[in-house]
Design a protein around this nucleic acid. Structure first.
Lengths: 221, 221
DNA sequence: ACCTGAACACCGTTCAAGT
DNA sequence: ACCTGAACACCGTTCAAGT
């Protein structure tokens, strides 16, 4: 009985995840989701308290694709591997980025993920204070997403717009003209997000490592 | 005539900013804003094309509180000062964080801000490639906001919830128990966001500096 | 006791009717 | 030519009526 309810709830949540994957989270409404499942909108309220609970559940479903954290070698490769694995989940569910960034409420799976990452630093001998700051500095990058600076998706801008842009914003234009690390122009095919993400990730990890090695501690006040 | 239209538009936008500041951006609707201004909802559409344009305009208004970038000393204090100044604007308009994070479209003021920051690095002799990566690594932190890891606002959790939390998530609990840099418990009064932001900012600037000093260049592929 | 259709209080935006 | 009320196509959620 409760087993059946759980299954029904799971079915609702995975349907919501699939729907968000295909039509975007903004288009996922209780009514649309109900239609997708062939039920009346109100039927959903037996499985989720309200729309907020639905989204929390969607986060749980998506994060469940992530296995438990595997700690084989040192803290640094462990964290790196973990975050990059999380990143692949984020790429699979593009709506997840905004949901995690936007909503302050933490579901159990979010807390569990954060907890397991903190554990890696602490077990590696990071002091609690340093770990605290390190996690703040990590910020949303611990979820494996880059900050989107520019449009990213959508059509490339028309040539005349590019000309106007480079006139008004020569520095942005110069950045856009930088060749990707594979030699191709960034303008042509956008940034190599994976490369940029790993660059920033390694920069952070370098910083963490350096502070840890130097036995960083807070200034006495 | 066009002057009058501009003034009217400005009035609509600043009213929207004030409204978002006081009741939150989610509660700002075309209808609510119109009511605030004592006009019929449709009247707004003479000054803004649609709600997206309204929000773009709100971003412009908020960012206009920021003066032009002042470059007196080296790149590092210049960038640091600039970002911390931007942070005060963000704190004044809490809705701005989500708007900037969420919407990929860039208004002119957003582009101008980004361009002026890029200029600082380039003029300091950062190569274009390095500047590119550095701006990506900077990410949304160039806007002066920390990533919100936890709830932040709202009521503090009840004691029994804390007990349950520390049992299931001992590492998160340990982080929460870390004393703030002024010696007070974080649990009692939340993190010192300003401190955490500057910590992360300096960590990034350290990394940028180190790469620049070492004359970093991309690996040949 | 359970289910659900209608209804409520909202949205952003279109459009035709009115001046 | 300008303005605007009504209307359209949506929301999330309540609640009472029906079985």
């Amino acid at each position: 009985m409760t087993e059946r309810v759980r299954l029904q709830r799971e079915r609702v949540l995975t349907a919501a995840v699939d729907l968000a994957d295909s039509i975007g989270i903004d288009a996922v409404s209780m009514r649309r989701l109900a239609a997708e499942l062939g039920v009346v909108p109100m039927a959903l309220y037996k499985h989720v308290a309200d729309k907020d609970a639905l989204i929390d559940g969607m986060v749980d479903v998506a994060l469940s694709e992530l296995g438990p954290l595997e700690q084989a070698d040192g803290w640094r490769p462990t964290v790196r591997r973990r975050v990059l694995a999380t990143r692949t989940v984020m790429l699979r569910h593009p709506w997840l980025r905004r949901v995690l960034e936007t909503r302050p409420t933490s579901t159990l799976s979010v807390l569990a993920y954060t907890d397991s990452l903190i554990a890696v630093f602490r077990q590696a001998g990071f002091s609690d204070v340093l770990t605290h700051h390190v996690m703040h500095a990590f910020g949303s990058r611990m979820w494996g997403f880059t900050q989107e600076l520019a449009d990213e998706g959508g059509d490339p801008p028309p040539p005349e717009a590019l000309a106007a842009l480079s006139q008004h914003f020569p520095n942005i234009a110069a950045m856009a003209a930088v060749a990707g690390h594979d030699g191709s122009s960034v303008v042509a095919q956008g940034c190599d997000d994976q490369y940029e993400f790993e660059f920033a990730l390694d920069l952070l990890l370098d910083g963490f490592d350096r502070l840890h090695q130097a036995d960083w501690r807070p200034r006495p006040s």
